[in-house]
């Protein structure tokens, strides 16, 4: 029962830097988080008007997902239901939770915004990626203190090894108070662009890259 699964592409956005497969492809260290994410969207010429309707957490996740799927278009080779999206973070949807809370806590100017409330759940970002790419596979959102390579590798490998799915978009997307960090990668049963074996050690290596 020795199965191997492969990380075929990975992308991170943190500290004003976008890296794809470990090399820096865009940088701007001057901007606040929200502006930087918008700039990344424009720089990579992504066109999806709904991007502007998303909250910051979803925008960040969306942009990274666009970059890895452009690099490794697993949605073209796999059935909708065979692709999973498993993402984790630490702050949940706290950034938007606070915005909703501000909207309802001002006694004199009291208007809950439906468009804000929608994003007070962290798994909405998975929904956004799923809608954009019509991905219908299994999807779960975990809350952890920090990126847990042991957990993620064993969870995803067991999903793949039990043939529940054929491939997976997975990783970490966190946004709170101008601090942000996104790290997404694809895992497949087959070798591909990078063909890095999906183990906890390998994951730690590319995560800390």
């Amino acid at each position: 029962m020795e199965y191997k699964n492969y990380i075929n592409t990975f992308c991170s956005i943190k500290n004003g830097t976008v890296s794809i497969d470990g090399s820096i492809s865009f940088e701007d260290k001057t901007l606040p988080a929200a502006d930087f994410i918008k700039l990344v969207y424009k720089h990579f010429q992504i066109s999806y008007p709904k991007f502007y309707k998303m909250d910051q957490l979803s925008r960040l996740a969306f942009v990274v997902s666009e970059l890895i799927l452009k690099n490794n278009p697993i949605t073209l080779k796999n059935e909708d239901a065979d692709i999973a999206i498993i993402i984790a973070n630490s702050a949940s949807s706290l950034e938007t939770d606070e915005e909703h809370q501000r909207n309802i806590s001002d006694k004199n100017n009291y208007f809950a915004s439906p468009a804000v409330f929608v994003y007070t759940l962290p798994n909405i970002l998975i929904g956004e990626i799923a809608i954009r790419n019509s991905i219908k596979g299994e999807n779960t959102f975990f809350i952890f203190d920090k990126f847990d390579a042991d957990f993620m590798s064993s969870y995803i490998n067991s999903l793949l090894n039990s043939n529940k799915i054929k491939c997976c978009i997975t990783g970490w997307v966190d946004f709170y108070e101008n601090k942000y960090e996104a790290f997404l990668y694809t895992v497949e049963k087959e070798k591909g662009i990078l063909s890095l074996e999906h183990t906890s050690d390998q994951l730690k290596k590319i995560y800390n890259n």
């Binding site: 998975i126 929904g127 799923a130 809608i131 019509s134 991905i135 299994e138 999807n139």
Partner: peptide, 21 residues
Amino acid sequence: GNSNDAFHQTASSPDGAGAYL
């Protein structure tokens, strides 16, 4: 079983594709 409806942030799809899956 679990799947994604891939239709809308909050609204379920009219044909219940995710539910069916």
